[in-house]
C-alpha cells in the first residue's frame, strides 16, 4: 500500500459530511444545554440548571426505570428466541433455511410505524387478540388502555421486530463454528445438550454479546414504536426516555432541558458504542 495524498482526498468528502451532519450537532447541543432555550429563542446562560432539572424531574426519573425494563426485557426475549431459532435453522439446509430466515426477518424489514400500527389494531378492544382470548374462554382485555398491560404490549412489539435480526447474527456465529469441534465432542460421548452448553455456547459468546449491544442501543433509543403504539400512555405507563425527550422538545418546546436530556442519552449510547467497537474488531 502506498502513502498517497489521494487517499485523504477520496475519504475527506465522507468524513466532512459525517462530521458536519452527525458530529458537530452533538457539540452544538452540549452548548445549548447550558442555556435557557424555549421555542428556538436562545435565552440566558444557566450553567448546569437544565441538567439538575433532568435529574430531579419525577417524570424523567420514572421514565428511566420504564426504559430500562423495556430495553432489557425486550433484549432478553429477542436473544432467547433468536438463539432457539438459529439453532433450529442451522440444522436445515438450502432453500428451507432461506425461507425460514426470510419469514423471521419480515418484522425487521417493515417500518416500525407500520409494525406498531398493525399491532395496535390487533390489541384493539374489538381486535384479533380479544377475539382469540374470548374463543379460548378468557375475558376481553383493554391491552393498550391498562397501565399494567400497556408496557407488556410495548415490550412485546419491540422484541417482535428484533427477533429476526438476533437470529441472523447468531446464526452467522453458529455457522462459523468448525464442524470438527462438534464431531470431536460427539466422539467424546457428549450428547447434543452438552455439545450445546460446552462447545457451541462458549463460541457463540461474541456474536451474542455483539447482538445484545446493538439491540440495547436500538431498544433504548426506540421512539417510533412507543409513539405509534401507546403515545407514552396510559398516563405515563409507557413513557420511555425517548418519548420524554420528544415531548420536552416538540410538545413543551423546552429545548434547553431537551438538549441536556439528549446529552445524557448520548452518554449512555457512547458507553454502548465503546463496548461495541471493542468487541467488533473493525480493521483497516
Amino acid at each position: 500500500m502506498k502513502a498517497n495524498k489521494l487517499g485523504a482526498i477520496l475519504v475527506s468528502p465522507s468524513i466532512l459530511f459525517l462530521a458536519v451532519i452527525l458530529i458537530i450537532p452533538l457539540f452544538y447541543t452540549i452548548y445549548i444545554s447550558l442555556y435557557d432555550m424555549r421555542y428556538l429563542q436562545l435565552g440566558d446562560f444557566v450553567g448546569l440548571k437544565n441538567y439538575i432539572k433532568v435529574f430531579t424531574s419525577d417524570d424523567i426519573r420514572s421514565s428511566i426505570s420504564i426504559t430500562f425494563i423495556v430495553t432489557f426485557v425486550g433484549l432478553f426475549l429477542s436473544i432467547i428466541t433468536g438463539t432457539l431459532l438459529a439453532l433450529w435453522i442451522n440444522s436445515k439446509k438450502g432453500f428451507t433455511a432461506y425461507i425460514i430466515q426470510i419469514v423471521v426477518l419480515i418484522p425487521w424489514v417493515i417500518s416500525m410505524v407500520v409494525g406498531a400500527l398493525l399491532w395496535k389494531w390487533i390489541f384493539n378492544n374489538l381486535g384479533l387478540l380479544n377475539y382469540v382470548l374470548n374463543l379460548i374462554g378468557f375475558q376481553s382485555v383493554d391491552v393498550l388502555g391498562n397501565p399494567r398491560t400497556a408496557p407488556v404490549a410495548l415490550i412485546f412489539v419491540i422484541a417482535w421486530r428484533t427477533v429476526g435480526f438476533a437470529m441472523v447474527l447468531i446464526l452467522a456465529g453458529l455457522k462459523s463454528i468448525p464442524k470438527e469441534l462438534e464431531e470431536a465432542g460427539q466422539v467424546d460421548g457428549a450428547n447434543k445438550w452438552r455439545t450445546f452448553w460446552l462447545i457451541k455456547l462458549p463460541l457463540l459468546k461474541t456474536p451474542i454479546m455483539v447482538t445484545s449491544i446493538i439491540l440495547m442501543l436500538s431498544n433504548f433509543n426506540n421512539v417510533d414504536v412507543p409513539m405509534v403504539l401507546t403515545g407514552g400512555g396510559p398516563g405515563d405507563a409507557t413513557n420511555v426516555i425517548t418519548m420524554e425527550l420528544y415531548k420536552q422538545g416538540f410538545v413543551y418546546f423546552n429545548f434547553g432541558v431537551a438538549s441536556a436530556l439528549s446529552f445524557v442519552v448520548l452518554m449512555v449510547n457512547i458507553l454502548l458504542i465503546t463496548l461495541y467497537i471493542r468487541m467488533v474488531k473493525y480493521e483497516i
Binding site: 475519504v11 468524513i15 433504548f220 433509543n221 420528544y246
Partner: peptide, 29 residues
C-alpha cells in the same frame, strides 16, 4: 491508500455506525 490521520478518520466512520442506530439521541441535535 495510506495517508495521515487514516486511523482516526476510519474510527470516526466506525463510531458513526452504532451512533446512527441510537438515533433518538440525535433528534434534538
Amino acid at each position: 491508500f495510506l495517508f495521515r490521520f487514516k486511523k482516526p478518520m476510519f474510527y470516526l466512520v466506525v463510531f458513526c455506525i452504532p451512533l446512527s442506530i441510537g438515533s433518538s439521541a440525535l433528534i434534538i441535535p
